[in-house]
Simulated assay, not measured.
Amino acid sequence: MDSKPTEISSSKMFDGFNKRYRHFSPTLGCSMTFSIYFPPSPNPSDKFPVLYWLSGLTCSDENFIIKSGAQRVASIEGVALIAPDTSPRGLNVEGESDSWDFGVGAGFYLNAKQDKWKNWRMYDYVVKELPTLLSENFPQLDTSRASISGHSMGGHGALTIYLKNLEKYKSVSAFAPIVNPMNCPWGQKAFTNYLGENKADWEEYDATLLVSKFKDVSATILIDQGEDDKFLHDQLLPNNFAEACRSATVPLLLRMQPGYDHSYYFIATFIDDHIRHHAQALCL
């Protein structure tokens, strides 16, 4: 199967283009889609820095592109937006679609250790395969200048990937991230099934535990969290991460937003700040 990406849709927006692609992923063993927003380019030789967006539970590569409105400021700032899917699809593994918070649409951006879920390797897909694919097929993208962001499960992915790969990303931000998955039901379910019972394996994908290991974080971590988010107190636990950042002297800007929930209405409200946060880091 050809792993070279094939364009499957294109829509103009703010003088740039949203384009969607399909390719075969050797990492995941299935066909995958991803979306790119290319900002307008007066000079064809311009190369754009990239911002990876990792979506949350039940989402695909399309949710952020369709709902966030991020393209308006990305167009002005000259940042390309890269939105991968959230899990392998079409593998027909028994139980993969039994619940909305595990399996299809719920890859948790980790490399599974349990044999049944061996194709769930979204960490390697996001960190290794996708950047290589982009650099080899899209000369207008400068993948050496990259930042990462995400929402909920994707915020968990963005934070853990950033902390474990500080040399690869200029900055990180998140909306309502699952920051301490070892201590919440979503994380415990995913980690038990994907990784097994060894808690040392879980620690490799928990931002609250990882932040104490990587004290050379210099860029401020930006997190927005809605105060009316129904998942705030049992699943998201932002104060745990804030305390870990304080202890490790890692710079964190945690903004608690009164009245906002967990939805894309919340994301669309504050996405401009996040795009500018990353553009500043990417264009230094």
Rank of each mutant, 00 (worst) to 15 (best):
171 S>F: 01
171 S>A: 15
172 V>R: 00
172 V>A: 00
172 V>H: 00
173 S>M: 00
173 S>Y: 02
174 A>Q: 03
174 A>I: 03
174 A>T: 03
174 A>Y: 02
175 F>G: 07
175 F>C: 05
176 A>N: 10
176 A>T: 08
176 A>M: 03
176 A>Q: 07
177 P>K: 00
178 I>H: 02
178 I>M: 13
178 I>P: 01
178 I>G: 04
178 I>Q: 10
178 I>T: 06
179 V>G: 14
179 V>F: 01
179 V>M: 06
179 V>W: 01
180 N>W: 04
180 N>K: 07
180 N>T: 06
180 N>I: 01
181 P>K: 08
181 P>S: 05
181 P>R: 06
182 M>Q: 09
182 M>L: 07
182 M>I: 12
182 M>C: 10
182 M>F: 01
182 M>V: 09
183 N>L: 05
183 N>G: 04
183 N>A: 06
183 N>H: 11
184 C>D: 13
184 C>W: 00
184 C>S: 14
184 C>L: 05
184 C>T: 14
184 C>R: 02
185 P>C: 11
185 P>M: 07
185 P>H: 04
185 P>S: 15
186 W>E: 10
186 W>S: 11
187 G>Q: 07
187 G>C: 08
187 G>P: 08
187 G>W: 09
188 Q>S: 04
188 Q>C: 02
189 K>H: 03
190 A>S: 13
190 A>F: 02
191 F>M: 14
191 F>Y: 15
191 F>E: 09
192 T>W: 06
192 T>Q: 14
193 N>G: 13
193 N>L: 14
193 N>E: 13
193 N>Q: 15
193 N>S: 14
194 Y>D: 09
194 Y>H: 07
194 Y>W: 05
194 Y>L: 08
194 Y>F: 14
194 Y>T: 04
194 Y>R: 02
195 L>T: 06
195 L>M: 12
195 L>S: 09
195 L>A: 09
195 L>Q: 08
196 G>E: 12
196 G>R: 05
197 E>A: 15
197 E>V: 15
197 E>K: 15
198 N>Y: 12
198 N>W: 10
198 N>G: 12
198 N>V: 14
199 K>N: 06
199 K>H: 10
200 A>V: 14
200 A>W: 07
201 D>C: 11
201 D>P: 12
201 D>M: 11
201 D>K: 11
201 D>W: 10
201 D>I: 08
202 W>S: 13
202 W>P: 05
203 E>G: 13
203 E>A: 15
203 E>K: 13
203 E>V: 04
203 E>F: 01
204 E>W: 00
204 E>V: 05
204 E>K: 15
204 E>Y: 03
205 Y>D: 08
205 Y>G: 05
205 Y>N: 13
205 Y>K: 03
205 Y>M: 08
206 D>T: 07
206 D>M: 05
206 D>I: 09
206 D>S: 10
207 A>V: 07
207 A>W: 06
207 A>Q: 08
207 A>M: 08
207 A>P: 10
208 T>H: 01
208 T>A: 10
209 L>S: 04
209 L>Q: 03
209 L>E: 05
209 L>M: 05
209 L>Y: 08
